[in-house]
Design a protein around this nucleic acid. Structure first.
Lengths: 163, 163
DNA sequence: CCGAGATAGTTTCACCTGTAACCATATCGG
DNA sequence: CCGATATGGTTACAGGTGAAACTATCTCGG
């Protein structure tokens, strides 16, 4: 790479420069982390739940009954994480396993009455949190954000697929 | 919690329901993870760099010379992570420490010639990746996304501050 | 000049996570 | 019916991570 040595401090006139603070992947991560952290505080302090447990609880609550693999697929978690989160929730009596007689390898996870109570208590908090996040948005902006996130997801997925 | 037992399957007519797939914090995390993963593949395979190393490299490359604490502040990393990433980069000869004679506790990190070479090679790849992520955006949408991310960051920060 | 904090950075420890190995059951071809 | 292969789920292991403890230096009040 035979470049004439730049004597001054100007940041590479020929090359494009990268400012981390304006770099989309970085910005996305920071925003997601900040939002997650705030949400996690909600159920961590009040319900002693971690993020994986919350995701499993939310998914089971949403679908009433689901196998671990399906939960992982839906909630973007590896089966190991689902397994551990489910074990923790079962240990605390929040979910129950219903073995599938048609296929003894799998079991459907369902909320226990205790689990349902916790679920009904958390959901409004979570929804309120999400609403307050976008409280300063103007009409239509939340829909726009969701659309753009979908575009990003699709693009990122396509690029990853070329493995 | 004296609720009349719901006999049917309809998902709680009184309560608001939560669909994970439409829940903003979840969606943000999934998108950020997908984008990060794609980007990480770039420098992981080609340069054997992890995300923390990349962030430190990018920050030092951008500011020419910076202390570990300042890097952590700028790149949203704890000082532990910065310390380890810097040690790794130093071990591979990509950065160098210049102790500050005015304050022997700190040292400025700067790129070595090798580090600069890697930096100049990565930056265009990273920029191309970011550009291709938003390739399907329509004019103005990227600016909108950035603005909305800033709003989310501010809101999440404010809510966290009430500790 | 000295001792009580504050600050930069590293190390320790306990925990979380993913990959890979593993066990049980199911399926499918012969 | 049986062995090979696939699939659901758990366990073992190795690496990354943050909170807290620690070291070294600096600053400030007396």
């Amino acid at each position: 790479m035979h470049l004439k040595p730049k004597s001054s401090a100007a940041p590479a006139p020929g090359d494009a420069t990268l400012t981390l603070a304006g770099f989309l992947p970085y910005r996305l991560n920071v925003a997601a982390a900040a939002v997650s952290e705030g949400l996690a505080r909600l159920y961590a302090t009040r319900f002693r739940l971690g993020i994986p447990e919350w995701r499993v609880l939310a998914t089971v609550g949403e679908f009433r009954s689901m196998t671990a693999t399906a939960i992982g697929l839906h909630a973007h978690m590896g089966k190991v994480k689902v397994s551990r989160a489910a074990a923790a929730l079962e240990g605390r009596g929040l979910i129950r396993r219903e073995p599938n007689p048609q296929d003894l390898r799998e079991a459907f996870l369902v909320l226990t009455p205790d689990g349902e109570a916790v679920y009904r208590e958390i959901v409004p908090l979570a929804l309120a949190y999400a609403r307050s996040l976008t409280a300063d948005f103007r009409p239509g902006e939340e829909a726009t954000l969701n659309r753009l996130i979908d575009v990003l997801l699709r693009r990122a997925g396509e690029m990853g697929g070329g493995d």
